[in-house]
Amino acid sequence: EPLWIRPDAPSRCTWQLGRPASESPHHHTAPAKSPKILPDILKKIGDTPMVRINKIGKKFGLKCELLAKCEFFNAGGSVKDRISLRMIEDAERDGTLKPGDTIIEPTSGNTGIGLALAAAVRGYRCIIVMPEKMSSEKVDVLRALGAEIVRTPTNARFDSPESHVGVAWRLKNEIPNSHILDQYRNASNPLAHYDTTADEILQQCDGKLDMLVASVGTGGTITGIARKLKEKCPGCRIIGVDPEGSILAEPEELNQTEQTTYEVEGIGYDFIPTVLDRTVVDKWFKSNDEEAFTFARMLIAQEGLLCGGSAGSTVAVAVKAAQELQEGQRCVVILPDSVRNYMTKFLSDRWMLQKGFLKEEDLTEKKPWWWHLRVQELGLSAPLTVLPTITCGHTIEILREKGFDQAPVVDEAGVILGMVTLGNMLSSLLAGKVQPSDQVGKVIYKQFKQIRLTDTLGRLSHILEMDHFALVVHEQIQYHSTGKSSQRQMVFGVVTAIDLLNFVAAQERDQK
């Protein structure tokens, strides 16, 4: 057995438009009618409502009807409940999964919650491996369901041993009777949507819809739904939504950006999952974080739909894509998950301010006199920076000697690579993860907040409520011999709460 199987392995699926269902090699399930009293909570997966979006479509000038398939009504709160249950049931049916076995899954959280929910009911041990950027709410729900959680670096490539995929496979090879159901490759993922989600949409719309818009992560949702719609409703256009920084969209030119990270969760990847059939997507749109969270908040405030950030991405694209539809036509959007997962993220004004998705003037509360002053007023001194090749031991000596707790790590040209902190280095040394002679590049981390000289002290204040420091950066445009230009970030300084307090105190003292 291989040590790991690539999540982007070539698909062996034989589905073709027009091929009889009787030739399918898979076990198919028909939607079942729910009894009045459910035998367990797993029976509350599927049969989610279709809700008309009344205000947002009109606000953006849509002539067509805009409908939302509300997947956050599933038992675990997301569309991923469907595939989690289906993968477990299919693994039980073919004898792969037996009582007492362990389920391991690399996930952005929602599939993990679905699997942990099913594992709690069915009696399996469950280990979820997820990147650090995923919300604390997801972690809390997983723990409450009895799952064990392993976190991995957000910026690790999918084929790196440190990625959530790599760590999951390492655990599988170490733990007896453990299984990775593997949402990236498992046919049960798109089949769950082909058999149930798509049929529900067709039934709820009486077979009449002209466009379907869905955000894409593993691709199982859009693949399964689109294949069924292509068979039953061939005139329906399928629109895929991919965040900026991901590479799922086609044509490839759409993916060209210097951005590699994004805040919206559960969609987009740096590889093409095996289950994603991009041939059934008629057109791709890219979405960005700001519009995703703005539209998610709009869905909550104006439509009462308590959905997550990827739902915002989907609707932001839908109001663009559906401009081509006329009166009497219908566009369906998939709202994948609930706001429950993001209470401390985009639902929080403070978080939105820190990330730059909300401006101070958007909030009406009274601010102190210094709130709208610029960061450049602080008069920061030149920063202490270190090269990635310097040793951890030497870096600790320098920081202690100069009285700093942290320093930016830059390359020879001064471009920011990340940050090192005294606390992080000492804990890594004590844990045996690094040696004093190791290069400081081994303990770089990139989960820090950046701020510009033109940003306000109010925004800085919000950042420092949650973080010990902020890195002050400025952009530099560099022209190359080819005539092309590129933008790079340079370090201007490091600012802490002490710097802000000293500035405010000094100004008030001078005024007296």
Rank of each mutant, 00 (worst) to 15 (best):
V495G: 15
Q329R: 11
C331Y: 02
L384I: 05
D499Y: 01
F469L: 13
E365G: 14
R400I: 10
D438Q: 11
Y445E: 05
Y479A: 15
V434E: 10
V375R: 07
T364Y: 15
T314M: 06
S246M: 02
L276G: 02
A497R: 13
D411C: 15
I451V: 14
V491P: 06
D499P: 00
H462C: 12
G493K: 12
K449G: 04
L500S: 08
F503W: 11
V275F: 02
A292G: 08
I477E: 09
R297H: 01
G328R: 15
S486V: 09
A497N: 12
T294R: 10
T496M: 08
E361N: 11
A413S: 15
D349A: 03
K446R: 15
K359E: 14
G309N: 03
V386I: 15
L276Q: 01
F492W: 15
Q326P: 11
L399I: 10
L325D: 02
F503G: 03
V443N: 10
A316Y: 14
I238Y: 06
P388H: 09
E377V: 10
K359F: 08
S428H: 03
L347S: 02
I334A: 05
S437T: 05
L276P: 01
L399C: 08
L453R: 15
R488V: 13
V440F: 07
G393N: 05
I451T: 06
K367N: 12
S313Q: 06
T385C: 06
S427Q: 06
K446S: 15
S381C: 13
F492H: 13
V504E: 09
E290M: 13
L347H: 03
E365T: 14
A301F: 15
M466F: 15
G493Y: 14
H372A: 07
I396A: 06
G312C: 01
L363D: 10
S313T: 15
D337K: 01
L430N: 14
P336V: 04
K367Q: 12
T364L: 09
M490P: 14
I416G: 10
G245M: 00
I398E: 15
T496I: 14
H394F: 14
E508P: 11
F503P: 14
D499T: 06
D510L: 11
V319Y: 09
V409F: 10
D362F: 14
T260V: 12
L378T: 02
E303T: 11
T395Q: 09
D242V: 00
G393V: 13
M419H: 12
T391M: 15
E303M: 01
A318E: 03
K355V: 02
L347N: 01
D510C: 15
V415C: 15
I267N: 02
V317D: 08
G308I: 00
Q323A: 10
L500H: 11
I498V: 14
D282M: 03
V280A: 15
T496F: 14
N502W: 09
V440I: 15
T391A: 06
L325S: 02
Y342S: 02
V409I: 14
V275D: 00
M343Y: 03
V333R: 06
I300C: 02
S338F: 09
G379T: 12
E303S: 07
E252C: 06
D455N: 08
P251S: 09
L387G: 12
E475V: 14
T257R: 09
G240T: 00
I247D: 09
E253L: 08
V375A: 13
G418K: 07
L387A: 11
D411R: 13
Q450K: 14
E401T: 06
Q450V: 08
Q302D: 15
Q511L: 11
L380R: 15
Q376V: 06
G379L: 07
T456F: 14
T314Y: 07
R340T: 04
L299N: 03
S348H: 11
L464E: 06
E327F: 09
L426P: 03
F404L: 15
I334T: 11
L305Y: 14
H480R: 09
K484P: 14
G483I: 06
A407V: 15
L460E: 01
I444A: 14
E327N: 04
S485Q: 09
S461W: 09
G483S: 15
L299D: 03
Q489Y: 13
K433H: 14
S461Q: 09
A322G: 06
V315D: 02
D499K: 06
L380F: 04
I334S: 03
V409M: 15
Y342R: 01
G309F: 02
E250A: 08
G379A: 14
E265C: 00
T389K: 14
L426M: 14
K366M: 13
K345F: 00
A470N: 08
F492I: 14
Y479F: 14
L429T: 08
K320G: 09
R452Y: 14
E327A: 11
R278M: 04
L353R: 09
F492Q: 12
L457I: 15
N502K: 15
V264I: 12
T496L: 08
P273K: 00
Y342E: 04
V443S: 13
S486P: 05
L335A: 05
T391R: 06
Q487S: 13
V504W: 10
T421E: 08
N255E: 05
D510R: 11
L254M: 07
V280W: 10
G245L: 03
S310A: 03
E258R: 11
I477S: 09
P243I: 02
K366S: 12
R400W: 10
G312Q: 01
E365Q: 14
G403P: 09
L426A: 12
D349K: 07
K449D: 15
P383D: 06
Q376Y: 04
L426N: 08
R459Q: 14
V375L: 14
T385R: 12
V281Q: 01
E475P: 05
I416A: 10
E253V: 14
V339S: 06
R297M: 01
L422M: 12
Q478F: 13
L501K: 04
P383R: 06
A311K: 06
E265N: 02
R297I: 03
K367V: 15
T482P: 14
K355W: 07
I238M: 07
M490G: 15
T385H: 07
I247W: 06
Q323T: 12
I300V: 05
G245K: 01
Q447Y: 11
N255M: 00
V491H: 09
D270W: 00
F357W: 07
I451E: 04
A249Y: 04
V280D: 07
E508R: 10
M343K: 06
S381Q: 13
V386C: 15
K446W: 15
Q435S: 12
Q489T: 13
Q406T: 13
N341C: 00
M419P: 14
K320N: 15
Y269V: 01
W371G: 10
N424A: 13
L363G: 12
S437V: 15
D510H: 11
E263M: 07
A497D: 12
K355T: 03
I396C: 11
A296G: 07
A506D: 13
K355P: 02
S485K: 04
K367Y: 09
D289G: 00
A322Y: 01
R350T: 11
Q329G: 14
A470E: 04
S287D: 03
D289R: 02
G423F: 13
G432A: 13
G423D: 06
E265H: 05
T260Q: 13
T279D: 08
A321Q: 10
L430E: 13
V440C: 15
W351D: 01
R297V: 00
V332I: 12
V420I: 14
R374H: 13
E303F: 03
S427I: 14
Q507A: 13
I444K: 07
L387S: 13
G328N: 12
P368H: 06
M343L: 10
Q507H: 12
L387W: 13
G393P: 07
P336D: 04
M490K: 11
R459A: 12
L299M: 09
L500K: 01
V264Y: 01
V434M: 14
A249H: 04
V339T: 09
S428W: 13
L306C: 01
M490W: 12
G309I: 00
